[in-house]
Design a protein around this nucleic acid. Sequence first.
DNA 1: CTGTTAGCGCCTTCAA
DNA 2: TTGAAGGCGCTAACAG
Lengths: 332, 332
Amino acid sequence: MGATIKDIAELAGVSPATVSRVLSGQSDFYSEKTARRVHRAAKKLGYQKNTSAVELVTKTSKTIAVIVSSTQTNFADQIIDGIQEQAMQKDLNVIILYAGEKNAKLQKRALETVIERSVLGILLVAIDLDPSNDNLLRSANIPFLFLSICFRNHRFPFISSDDFKIGYQATTYLIEKGHVKIGFAAADLESFTGQLRLAGYRRAMDEYQLPTSPDWVSDGDFAYEDGVLAMKQYGEETQLTAVIASSDLAAIGILNQAQAFNVKVPNDLSVVSIDGTYLCNIVRPRITSVTQSFREMGIKGMQTLLGGKLDQFDLLYTGIGITERESAKSHG
Amino acid sequence: MGATIKDIAELAGVSPATVSRVLSGQSDFYSEKTARRVHRAAKKLGYQKNTSAVELVTKTSKTIAVIVSSTQTNFADQIIDGIQEQAMQKDLNVIILYAGEKNAKLQKRALETVIERSVLGILLVAIDLDPSNDNLLRSANIPFLFLSICFRNHRFPFISSDDFKIGYQATTYLIEKGHVKIGFAAADLESFTGQLRLAGYRRAMDEYQLPTSPDWVSDGDFAYEDGVLAMKQYGEETQLTAVIASSDLAAIGILNQAQAFNVKVPNDLSVVSIDGTYLCNIVRPRITSVTQSFREMGIKGMQTLLGGKLDQFDLLYTGIGITERESAKSHG
DNA sequence: CTGTTAGCGCCTTCAA
DNA sequence: TTGAAGGCGCTAACAG
């Protein structure tokens, strides 16, 4: 293939070791003169460093791996943006791998790929790791951190929004707007995230001594279709005056099905979504949301990952906040 | 770090060479018995192959790299899906890197990262490579192929939709619906893609002997805001009865600004977008689009990349088609 | 400041 | 079918 440091050494009339020192920028260990000679020779030969060789001997890599749950998670972009920003700043490379949705085999494959390459660190974005892969990840001896997902019992270190608070805040927002009958739609109730949010919703309703009904809670998977289904479940003549959607896409599903029912948002029904991605701004009516700090999640994620101490890592939540738009209004 | 084949060899009572043969599956070169022994030892030690070492000696890698222009290109997901499908099938790993939007430095960085790792092949999705990086890519001696972007004069091999045809087809569709005054909005007229589509639009208008006006063509960058701006440029009282948007997001921008103007879509104004991603289905009215075969682009991309012969590669266009939805209707 | 030497973990002849 | 030996390209002591 390409030229090696040996070729450069020959052309520049120095030893390979010197070339190595110059090229890897170990300043103070070579003279300006030889440095220039080496660089010139390298350029002339179109030299490209062989990362495999470097990593083989140094046993460290300058790339961090991001494993994402699928191509469909529309907020992952923001998290990755934050990661990239930090990587740039710290002169690290980032590679991204997809691990599908709840697919143990794909997860394993992605993990193996990055472990075999002994990356510097692994960030897992919205990955609900199959327990069969726990050991693989743990025994690799590579720092890792989960992003945008919560675990029970400190199974793994993670950074996420406080999902209980998300549910709580969305609900109190609506209650304080005068709503009493509030739906909770399209979250995956099997997931810890979904359960936390639901718990937050229930707590808020309880605190205000508002009755709830199982019919108001619809199961799903955070998807557009789940929003549509939820609205269908509530029905054309629903008694609900407000709904909390588990994601922006789910909220759009609710909006569209409401329109099909000729239920007016926000006049007949207020909708609050969770996430607050750009989608909230481009649909009409715009969607009021509990907005998560995804970009910050990426930034904090990188900082934490690189900061070490992941073993004694104690829960870090990134901020959330209500962004008011047109899809929710006061009731009564 | 982890165990090496030497450790395994010791534990299994064979030579490292044998372990290597067993683990890399060179069947016919070892007995079942030793194979079992080796595998058992490997599992016991939690062995993970050191990819750096393997690649250093074999000089080949089983991973293909995908470089994407940014996290914002919402159709890239579909292309990547297609790529992943093929990779899965051929037992290849894929890593994804972002190269920003028109950012020569980021492009260079991404290229270097993957070249240094001597990946099997490089797929560049929606990357308008800065000329300063042409040489880097070419001299790496790694097969590469551009996806979803066109080049003049065979600068690089690519697979894309036929952008001229896209412009032409969108226009004739509207003309045949009776529209005469048709806008062409929010495409980047500096890009070859934008120019081709515009040429297609003009050809169609010409063929039907329809006059056009420079005012009907708005420049932009395929973004949501460009759609909004285009509609503002056309104005509340526009004479246009139809507009072709350069992307789904741009179309949504047009929709929203039209609504702000109280211009009814499709009654007062028909809108056709280019791309046909899921966004077309979740906004109201749904958007009629010239739909591109992004997934197929990914699949064909992988096949072509791996098939070799990229030097004598002759243009391959993936299919397009009109998907009728509610945002466009007959005029007059 | 620079050259020499010895591997990193693995694959691959070559011989046995 | 297996083992021994050499080397991939690079870095890291250790001398000088």
